[in-house]
């Protein structure tokens, strides 16, 4: 009696497993399809989860694909290489509301070497000052004196220091090696 119950249970559990495995594979296929359909593309505004589809102004707004589709591609963030887009003058963002403001570009690299075994960080002022004024970072986020501001990945992940922009509007914190570029012995 007991033996046959175990046999029945064993047979049944196998059947359940088969059903679950079948359903799992079907689900996986569907999910993968959905993922492929959206991966690497910009969603239209009415599918981004933020815009209200009933909003009457929605159809008048530019779609991300129309604006970003022709710019140099990247793998993270907006999937646009913004610096290259500006360097190649594919976009010409104004430096001031009115008039021709002369932008103060500083070509000065800072090396941060207290990186706990990770490659050193090379911070290029140049690409940052092409977009930002000195006052955006100095003296509030960073002291001008090199090394005077205690920056850590902890503070960055909390959205301080580099994390004010990186992970929010500039390339995200998953891109470790875009900052940690210099081997320690270089």
């Amino acid at each position: 009696m007991r033996g046959s119950t175990i046999m029945w249970f064993a047979r049944d559990i196998n059947r359940i497993r088969r059903v679950f495995a079948g359903a799992g594979i079907a689900l996986l296929t569907v999910m993968f399809g959905v993922h492929l359909a959206y991966a690497g593309k910009w969603l239209p505004l009415n599918k981004d989860g933020l815009h209200d589809r009933r909003s009457p102004g929605l159809e008048l707004l530019q779609s991300p694909e129309a604006a970003l589709g022709s710019l140099p591609t990247d793998t993270a963030g907006n999937k646009v290489d913004w610096s290259r887009a500006m360097d190649e003058r594919l976009i010409k963002p104004r430096a001031a509301l009115a008039g021709d403001k002369t932008v103060q570009v500083l070509d000065l690299n800072i090396i941060m070497s207290d990186t706990a075994g990770h490659p050193n960080v090379l911070f290029p002022h140049k690409v940052h000052t092409q977009w930002l004024d000195c006052a955006n970072c100095h003296e509030s986020l960073f002291k001008s004196k090199t090394g005077a501001t205690p920056v850590s990945m902890g503070s960055i992940l909390r959205g301080e220091h580099c994390g004010v922009c990186h992970g929010a509007v500039a390339f995200p914190l998953t891109e470790c090696r875009r900052c940690h570029t210099l081997p320690h012995d270089s």
């Binding site: 604006a67 970003l68 646009v80 963002p93 104004r94 430096a95 977009w131 004024d133 509007v169």
Partner: peptide, 11 residues
């Protein structure tokens, strides 16, 4: 993304 095409962050 829309605004940074047209204006630099500093603006």
């Amino acid at each position: 993304w829309f605004h940074r095409i047209r204006f630099q962050c500093r603006v």
